[in-house]
């Protein structure tokens, strides 16, 4: 399933946050959206997932969702959004319970996604017992359980420390390499963007416009942190964003 964004614009009150965003998101690719803080990238992602309504423009899907897809547009949130009163398996189960699945089928799906995210041993643990990285892996398992057409990842690694982030990036690359999925990945971290994105859309500061779209040809599995080619792309992205980020940092939130 492909996604198209047609001339999306949005304001909060007097503040213009997004303007003239048009994007193609072809199936099987990871599109990263980077930009300075407050540029509206998370807002844009919520619009793609139907959690927020854009003031102008439309988000369109083209083509059918894959077979067995229960929730075509599926989010992974920055703060994990796990129910603290449910176990790991229970949290994954939540996404399946509203669909008519036989009990055995549901349990098979849960077991499958937990093993893909290396959480099988923690099925009965509560979120508070898990580290940040494991919590986010639970959220990824929950997203995989509904077999999404497009994964919408909203700064999924931003709440984690640097080492955990590195490990989870490898996990994401591994998951994608074994079964390529379509994803929109919002982040302010350029290193994540060059590791995980087939294409990287750079947004300007408020109102967010697309400044440039950078393509990286190196396959995801062959990318390494600190590799010269990726470093060059990252430096270029930073060049694009530097002034914007500085200006964004000097702005008043409500001005």
């Amino acid at each position: 399933m492909d996604l198209s964004l047609l001339d999306i614009g949005h304001s909060y009150g007097q503040t213009r946050v997004l303007e003239g965003i048009s994007l193609e998101i072809p199936a099987g690719q990871v599109l990263c959206i980077v930009g300075p803080s407050g540029c509206g990238k998370s807002t844009l992602l919520r619009m793609i997932g139907g959690l927020e309504r854009p003031a102008q423009g439309r988000v369109m899907t083209r083509g059918a969702a894959p077979e067995g897809c229960l929730n075509p547009l599926t989010f992974v949130f920055q703060d994990f959004a796990l129910l603290p009163w449910r176990t790991v398996a229970g949290n994954v189960s939540l996404a399946l319970e509203d669909h008519r699945l036989a009990r055995a089928r549901r349990e098979a799906v849960i077991a499958d996604v937990l093993s893909r995210t290396r959480l099988s041993d923690f099925a009965d643990a509560l979120p508070r017992q898990l580290s940040g990285g494991m919590r986010q892996r639970v959220a990824i398992a929950r997203a995989l359980a509904v077999n999404p057409a497009v994964m919408l990842l909203d700064e999924p690694l931003s709440a984690l420390d640097a080492q955990t982030r590195e490990l989870l990036m490898e996990d994401l690359v591994g998951l994608w390499s074994r079964a390529p999925f379509t994803a929109v990945y919002v982040t302010h971290n350029l290193a994540e963007a060059v590791r995980l994105g087939h294409r990287i859309a750079v947004l300007s500061r408020r109102p967010g416009r697309i400044r440039e779209i950078v393509e990286i040809d190196t396959p995801l599995a062959e990318r390494r942190t600190g590799e010269a080619g990726l470093e060059r792309v990252q430096a270029h992205l930073w060049e694009l964003m530097r002034e914007e980020a500085r200006a964004a940092d000097a702005e008043l939130i409500d001005a």
Partner: peptide, 24 residues
């Protein structure tokens, strides 16, 4: 609220969101 948004993002019914997220 992020838990409720999460429920909506997975297409849970209104009743499910109330029963499984809001009440607990």
């Amino acid at each position: 609220r992020t838990l409720i948004r999460m429920g909506q993002s997975f297409g849970l019914t209104w009743l499910s969101i109330v029963r499984k997220i809001v009440l607990p």
